[in-house]
């Protein structure tokens, strides 16, 4: 279980997160929706230690993560699929997956996870010798997810996995997210595609300019007028 309490982050003079609190219970899919610049990515980055919070706490199964190095956070079972995929373009698909398992020493299990990734994304296996930079956007997103699975996460965080992808690929990615979750991995999903995210999630939070303004079960938020107006593009 991940718990964030009164988390504040400043970037230079900008108060990017203004004391947000949220919870990600074990085994659930939780989504954080909001407009561009609301602070969604910042939230994920401060969980994984890429951004230093100015105050507040992040606890993971009772242990504080604030001030912990990213490397140790990843080893404790949290991983982030960053916005824009960020695959290692000049490394092969196979090497990208191996990098996911960089800190692991359980060889047999690592290979089992690699086979699992190839089963989830058969296209990656066909292209495993290819450089990641030569893959299509959708395939790169699959690789980014596969690479994250290779870290053996208990909590998988995704930043805008649907960004820039064709609708059919988006659907596939969301199906995979549900499948990974069904396998016991907790998911924290950040999305601008509020509809798809809320449909997939057990629980959702709405973030507006650094503050959480709404929260509730996914379906409940989908039906909420304010959400429908602001994020689902529906007229009154």
């Amino acid at each position: 279980m991940l718990r964030i309490e009164k988390l504040s982050v400043h970037y230079g003079g900008i108060h990017a997160l203004q004391g947000i609190s949220l919870e990600v219970p074990e085994g659930k899919i939780v989504t954080l929706i909001g407009a561009n610049g609301a602070g969604k990515s910042t939230t994920l980055k401060s969980i994984i230690g890429l951004v230093k919070p100015s105050s507040g706490s992040v606890t993971w199964n009772g242990k504080s993560l604030v001030g912990t190095q990213t490397k140790d956070i990843v080893e404790s079972g949290i991983v982030l699929v960053p916005e824009g995929r960020r695959v290692f373009a000049n490394l092969s698909v196979d090497e990208n997956l191996s990098l996911g398992a960089y800190a692991r020493s359980d060889k047999a299990e690592t290979e089992a996870d690699r086979r699992r990734v190839f089963k989830l994304f058969p296209r990656l296996e066909d292209r495993k010798k290819q450089k990641a930079g030569t893959l299509s956007g959708g395939e790169q997103q699959m690789l980014a997810v596969g690479r994250a699975i290779m870290t053996k996460p208990k909590l998988l965080m995704m930043d805008e996995p649907s960004l820039g992808l064709a609708p059919i690929v988006v659907k596939m990615i969301f199906d995979i997210i549900k499948e990974i979750n069904a396998g016991g991995t907790t998911i924290l999903l950040v999305e601008q595609n509020a509809k798809a995210a809320l449909e997939a999630a057990h629980y959702g939070y709405v973030l507006e300019t650094g503050r959480i303004t709404l929260s509730g079960e996914g379906r409940q938020l989908l039906a909420d007028d304010r959400v429908r107006k602001a994020y689902l593009g529906e007229a009154e």
């Binding site: 890429l50 990843v74 960053p82 960089y102 870290t151």
Partner: peptide, 11 residues
């Protein structure tokens, strides 16, 4: 290639 992404791989 990408320092931040490398950090995310526990490197």
């Amino acid at each position: 290639t990408d320092v931040e992404a490398a950090r995310l791989m526990a490197i």
